[in-house]
């Protein structure tokens, strides 16, 4: 990365710049850092005034999320977050896989065999993603109620597939557009069938793009709140919904426990976005801006 940047004219700053940037970055990251620290505190340490920066770390909060229930009055209550984490993983993974399969085919079509009105189709597809979710959810909520889809896995998975699809199409199209068609044409001249050109020539070249799109889709779905709030039932609730419902509830006043749940929820996202650094710009703009 450093090399490529230098060639395009990134100038050198010394360790002085590092010091300044470190102060700013750590201050900027502090709200996240503090939550992660809180997750390792005991209940009393988490509520200490003045706040404690030095403490004996404990993992009891993490155990409480999954294993040991917390005590409310005389009763032991389960947080239920093991199920919610499973729901989140299951629903995001399956919807991303389906959306990626359909979206990659469509992106290849849009990129290589443009239709009449290609741009119009693409505009409509992007618009469905840019619309306020509240606009889309009102009729969907009513329809799912009639079709009996709300509350189960199928409904929310269907909706998340549709939620990921525009993103997958635009991202994958931006990757396909970057490839030169010459290699594919060469394969055609050599007598490859169209299916083979797609699966053996085009697809392997966008492998990195596929991975990036999948991970971005996972993050977006993992974080999604409103659709899940309205369409999941008690047994199919995802982590964001469950987390929002803890606010003001029993877990909500247990900052340590809540922080542990948040940490478990955030750390995967932080790790994968670190790995995706090069594709971040394209990912957050739905593939409309490449560099």
């Amino acid at each position: 990365m450093a090399k490529g940047y230098r060639a395009r004219g990134v100038r050198q700053g010394g360790w002085g710049r590092t010091g300044l940037a470190a102060v700013v970055s750590v201050a900027y990251f502090f709200p996240v850092l503090w939550i992660i620290l809180t997750a390792f505190k005991t209940h009393n340490d988490a509520l200490a005034t003045p706040p404690k920066f030095l403490f004996h770390p404990t993992i009891e909060n993490f155990i409480a999320v999954f294993r040991r229930s917390y005590i409310k009055g005389f009763e032991a209550v389960d947080t239920g977050f093991a199920l919610f984490f499973f729901n989140s993983i299951f629903v995001s993974a399956s919807s991303v896989v389906i959306a990626l399969a359909i979206g990659t085919l469509a992106a290849y079509g849009f990129s290589r065999f443009p239709l009449r009105g290609n741009d119009t189709y693409l505009f409509i597809i992007l618009t469905t993603r840019m619309l306020p979710p509240i606009v889309v959810i009102i009729p969907i909520f009513l329809m799912f109620r009639v079709a009996g889809l709300s509350g189960g896995y199928a409904g929310v998975m269907l909706l998340y597939t549709a939620f990921n699809l525009p993103f997958a199409i635009w991202m994958m199209k931006s990757f396909f557009d970057e490839l030169s068609g010459d290699v594919e044409d060469a394969a055609r001249v050599d007598g490859s069938s169209e299916t083979r050109v797609f699966s053996r020539v085009a697809l392997p070249q966008v492998r990195a793009g596929l991975a990036a799109t999948a991970v971005f889709g996972l993050i977006l779905t993992w974080n999604e709140f409103l659709f899940a709030l309205l369409l999941t039932g008690v047994g199919t609730r995802t982590v964001p919904v469950a987390m929002a419902q803890t606010i003001g509830g029993d877990i909500g006043v247990r900052w340590g426990l809540l922080a542990a749940i948040e940490t478990l929820f955030l750390v995967p996202v932080i790790v994968v976005s670190f790995l995706l650094q090069h594709q971040l710009l394209r990912g957050v703009t739905f593939g409309t801006i490449k560099r």
Partner: peptide
Amino acid sequence: TPMMLSYVA
């Protein structure tokens, strides 16, 4: 990092 996180978080 903040922009990759969930609104709920």
